[in-house]
């Protein structure tokens, strides 16, 4: 243990020295002289009808990165679900004796009222963020996570049975696959139309409107579906044994 600390200490000092030597040559904070950003600022509205340049970069100019990132999240969820499910299979025998901790609806009316008030606002906010990704900050990823918090709030305020009713595991799993495959398939549309992978193939619309920017908005939608359902599946697989009891 002590040897490890000494080892790490030396390493950390060296690492800090290397980092400092490199960072010392950085330009002052806030200065930018790449041509990249200037070009994008100039072309993203005329070319892609997207007033949010960040979305244009994420879903069009560097859309392939986002495809990869979506699948990082997707495969992590798949892996966690697979691992937790596998353990479940082997522990089925001792599970029956587990103390019941089934989450019933809370006694407090205040919590329930809070939930009733929060859920519609969250749903609308999430949908707004997903659909307006090409117009204003936010997009499929952020909106998807916001939407995924809805079942969680329901779980906390109305119990596991209601949770299962609004977010059945089969739906979450299907939506996750659909969203993830959808991104790649929209990419393939470009090839089918005789263009390049991930090239825009749908009408661009009027800049500044929600249904504009062509594939950028469609891709935002698929990401929203994949991320939202992915997080729900993640939550479900963590509380799976409780959910199964609620089903019985």
């Amino acid at each position: 243990m002590k040897a490890r600390l000494v080892l790490f200490g030396i390493g950390a000092l060296g690492f800090a020295a290397v980092w400092f030597a490199g960072a010392r040559k950085l330009d002052p904070m806030g200065s930018y002289h790449g041509a990249y950003g200037e070009i994008l600022n100039a072309v993203s509205v005329p070319e892609r009808h997207s007033t949010n340049v960040v979305s244009a970069v994420n879903f069009d100019y560097r859309g392939l990165d986002t495809l990869g990132e979506e699948f990082i999240l997707y495969i992590s969820v798949v892996a966690v679900a697979a691992i937790l499910r596998k353990q479940k299979d082997e522990e089925e025998e001792d599970e029956d004796e587990a103390p019941t901790q089934l989450r019933e609806a809370p006694d407090s009316d205040a919590v329930r009222l809070f939930g009733v008030g929060l859920v519609p606002v969250t749903v609308i906010f999430g949908l707004y963020m997903i659909s307006h990704g090409s117009v204003s900050p936010g997009g499929g990823f952020q909106g998807g996570v916001v939407l995924a918090t809805v079942p969680l709030v329901v779980y906390l305020c109305a119990g596991a049975k209601t949770y299962l009713r609004i977010a059945p595991p089969a739906l979450a799993k299907g939506g996750e696959g659909l969203g993830a495959a959808g991104y790649a398939l929209i990419g393939c549309l470009g090839v089918l139309a005789g263009k390049k992978f991930l090239e825009n193939v749908v009408p661009l619309g009027t800049p500044g409107e929600a249904w504009s920017a062509g594939t950028i908005t469609l891709l935002n939608l698929t990401v929203g579906v994949a991320v939202g359902t992915g997080f729900v599946e993640l939550i479900s697989s963590f509380v799976e044994e409780l959910l199964r009891k609620a089903e019985k």
């Binding site: 960040v54 900050p137 952020q142």
Partner: peptide, 8 residues
Amino acid sequence: DVALSQIV
């Protein structure tokens, strides 16, 4: 955009 991602 990054701030929103970071919050969620």
